[in-house]
């Protein structure tokens, strides 16, 4: 009827052969998947180190260019040296690392937001970075009453006003 209908079929011999090709392809795919999944689950490949990882690594953490990821500790943000850089602490459940980062931080940078910084752990016990990235979580919320405010901030605000009356 149409041109599409006239497209040829392969012979039976070819079809038998192609099924082996398919089995082979699935085998290769399954092995690749298993290897990559295992490397992810065993943490053989890491995109960033957490403060806990850095502390656990001890002296080995010094000198190499790595990424450090965690939350910006509240009250720790300071401008440093009058330049555009910032200093702050990055923490996770198991530790805290002081970071000195050069360059203007992204606009979303604030307390209690995830960050990934690239740089090195230097003698003096801080992390020197020249690439600061803000990591947003998967929550997308409309601002409440025209003001940007997270649920925690709202709760905090409600707690502080609770005892006022």
């Amino acid at each position: 009827m149409s041109a599409v209908m006239n497209t040829p079929h392969a012979s039976d011999a070819m079809r038998r052969r192609t099924r082996y090709f398919m089995l082979g392809a699935f085998l290769v795919a399954a092995i690749a998947f298993a290897v990559i999944a295992a490397s992810g689950i065993n943490q053989n490949l890491v995109y960033y180190w957490t403060p806990t990882d850095l502390h656990a690594a001890g002296d080995k953490a010094y000198g190499a260019t790595i990424r450090l990821g965690g939350m910006v500790s509240p009250g720790s943000i300071r401008n440093h040296g009058g330049a555009s850089g910032v200093e702050f602490d990055v923490h996770d459940a198991g530790g805290k690392v002081h970071v000195k980062s050069s360059g203007v931080p992204p606009q979303m940078f604030r307390e209690n937001i995830g960050v990934v910084v690239e740089g090195t752990m230097v003698q003096g016990g801080y992390f020197k970075s020249n690439r600061l990235m803000v990591s947003h979580d998967n929550e997308y919320k409309a601002p409440e009453a025209g003001h940007p405010m997270s649920q925690e901030e709202l709760k905090k605000l409600m707690k502080t006003t609770e005892g006022m009356e």
Binding site: A29, A30, A37, G40, M133, D137, N138, E139, Y140
Partner: peptide, 25 residues
């Protein structure tokens, strides 16, 4: 068929490894 393994890996990448990209919303 072989290249398709990357599709579940893309999906699970944000769970298996720590990443800059956020988890699925």
């Amino acid at each position: 068929i072989i290249a398709y393994v990357d599709v579940p890996i893309v999906y699970f990448s944000v769970r298996w490894w720590n990443s800059l990209h956020q988890l699925q919303s």
